[in-house]
Simulated scan of single mutants.
Amino acid sequence: MELIQHLWEADSDTLKVVVGVALRLLIGARRFYRRGWGGLQHFRHYLPALVTLFVEGMLYLVANGLILWGLVGMIF
């Protein structure tokens, strides 16, 4: 735990970018493997589709924010 805290404090901008990119890759992979022959995402029921897409959308926004925050921190 102490190592993670030290890494977060020492090079937090790089870590923010790495975590943001990792989140985007995770979401992209989940979306990719949910696609069928026609290129559409397939869900068994409507409610899980709504919840999944909403949560993934929010995580995607968080990932973009982390990437931008990290890049701005690196530049300035």
Rank of each mutant, 00 (worst) to 15 (best):
R31Q: 13
Q41K: 08
I4W: 05
L26K: 02
G73D: 05
S12P: 02
G28E: 07
D13R: 02
R44H: 11
L40A: 13
A29D: 04
H42N: 08
E9H: 09
V18Q: 07
I4T: 07
F54W: 11
L7F: 09
G57P: 02
N64S: 13
L50V: 11
W69N: 05
S12A: 13
G73I: 01
I67A: 04
A22P: 01
R44A: 14
L25A: 14
Q41N: 06
L7Y: 09
R24I: 12
V51R: 10
Q41H: 05
G65D: 07
Y46D: 13
V19C: 14
G70M: 03
M58I: 15
L25V: 12
V72D: 11
H6I: 03
A49L: 10
I67F: 07
I75C: 01
L47M: 12
M58P: 00
V51P: 01
G36F: 02
H42L: 12
G38M: 09
H6M: 06
W37T: 12
G28K: 02
V51Q: 05
R30G: 03
Y33A: 05
G57M: 08
G70F: 00
R31N: 12
G57I: 03
F43V: 05
R35D: 09
V17W: 02
F43L: 10
L23G: 01
V72W: 09
Q5W: 03
F76M: 07
N64W: 14
G73K: 06
V21F: 04
L53A: 06
W8P: 00
V51L: 15
L61F: 07
I67W: 02
G36S: 07
V21Y: 00
W37V: 10
V18I: 15
R24W: 11
R44T: 14
A10M: 06
G65Q: 05
N64G: 14
A63I: 01
R24L: 15
L23F: 15
T14H: 10
I67H: 03
P48C: 07
V62I: 15
V62W: 00
G57D: 08
P48W: 07
W37C: 01
E2C: 01
L66S: 00
L68Y: 09
L71S: 02
Y60F: 15
K16E: 06
M74F: 05
L26V: 12
L7T: 04
E2S: 12
L25C: 13
L61M: 10
R35T: 10
A22K: 03
F76C: 01
E56A: 04
L53I: 09
D11V: 10
V51H: 06
T52H: 05
P48I: 03
S12F: 10
F76E: 06
L59H: 01
F54M: 12
Y60C: 03
P48S: 05
G65A: 15
L26H: 03
H45Q: 12
I4S: 11
V18L: 15
L40F: 13
E9S: 13
G57Q: 10
L61N: 02
I4E: 11
W8E: 14
I27C: 04
G38Q: 09
L26Q: 04
L3T: 13
A10L: 08
R44P: 01
M1F: 08
A22L: 15
P48H: 06
M74R: 10
A10S: 14
R24N: 06
A10K: 08
F32S: 03
L26G: 09
